[in-house]
Design a protein around this nucleic acid. Structure first.
Lengths: 203, 203
DNA sequence: CAGTCGATGTTGTCACCGTCAACATTTTTC
DNA sequence: GAAAAATGTTGACGGTGACAACATCGACTG
């Protein structure tokens, strides 16, 4: 082979190199462009310069690809939550920071977020979901830190998850009037206002 | 025609009678059985004992059918909210009642609720969405009643919407541990506990 | 270093789907 | 009672998910 040609027009000598990752990236692009129902394995294959059946060497079926997207999303969300709470000691501030990071993640990664919480995406045969449970544990721990030692922190954790989750969903769906949440700055202000108004009762 | 035969096996003399409603019912059934991506116009037609292209006399396309489902959902949700708040005078109790009714509606009508908040379902050409804005106004009014006259009630309304919305979504997605929300009674208790813990700061 | 074998990519195929056009039948309207 | 509008049918087309059979590449093994 004369020279390593990385231009997009060159044929990748039969094997692709990292088709799995290319398919995931193409899927995110496609969903961003055409919506979830506009995703097709064949179009992903086309964008990866590969034949229409090649994806089946990396994903058992379309659902498996979506599951991989969801998993990537949960990993990044968990990382964002941990990062947001790092260095924050006050339990209430920790929950606030988590909530703000949660909504921000959703706004910044609308495709991943929607896929993460799209039902009908089941874990393929051998896979285990685990990641979202981890995120929930993080909430339970933070909620436990600001309740009486004897109280059950799970209800507080559910509340602490429901509010940012609902806000994120409504913003993503455009249900919140545009005047309220059209720019990122407005979204940020909205989040902080709501969380501030809501943090009181958990103590 | 000898006698009015309403049995399912009899052919409805070319015209169906109320195909539009039959298609909507079939769609709800189908989604309940196979999920949103398992919905197909052809299968709906089959279940209505009608040819595969007949639905196009009542819906411009698949999206229009889904939009009709969503609209039915918004109407019923609004009715449930109004009914729940009827006779409740205290503004906080009104918001509580709305929230509980909201989550209950979602749990009782998972198919409608999910379709209502599935993005990518746009209003067909001549249609207007309006219904969800009405639901939002209801929240704003209730929130306004318990704030200082000068304060902007919209943030409170968004919060009052986000919490039940997020809770409903998480329960529907099975994200809340089964031990927390497996039976309707548990869901009801969870809702009331959360709303009770959260109602304080709005005053 | 040759040969084998698993991983990866390709071609071909099938059933199903959304959508349209052309045609048939029924109901309504004048 | 005929014309017109509404409703249902048949047939076709391109796109899709999924599978089977085949081709090629890369890595290990003797």
């Amino acid at each position: 082979m004369p020279a390593g040609d990385t231009s997009s027009s060159a044929k990748r000598s039969y094997h692709h190199g990292d088709l799995r990752a290319a398919l995931i990236d193409a899927a995110i692009e496609l969903i961003a462009e055409r919506g979830l129902h506009g995703l097709s394995l064949r179009e992903c294959a086309r964008r990866a310069d590969v034949s229409h059946a090649a994806p089946y060497r990396h994903f058992a079926d379309k659902n498996a690809l979506l599951f991989a997207l969801a998993r990537r999303g949960f990993e990044r969300l968990a990382a964002a939550g941990v990062a947001a709470m790092a260095g924050v000691d006050d339990p209430r501030d920790r929950l606030d920071a988590y909530g703000v990071a949660y909504v921000r993640f959703a706004v910044d990664n609308p495709v991943l977020f929607r896929v993460m919480f799209t039902a009908e995406i089941a874990a393929p045969e051998g896979e285990v979901a685990g990641d979202e449970a981890g995120a929930f544990d993080l909430l339970v721990d933070s909620a436990a830190a600001l309740l009486d030692p004897g109280a059950d922190p799970r209800d507080a954790a559910v509340a602490a998850w429901s509010l940012p989750h609902g806000l994120a969903m409504l913003v993503l769906d455009g249900r919140i009037p545009a005047a309220e949440a059209s720019t990122p700055a407005q979204v940020e202000r909205l989040m902080r206002t709501i969380f501030a108004a809501w943090r009181g009762p958990l103590a």
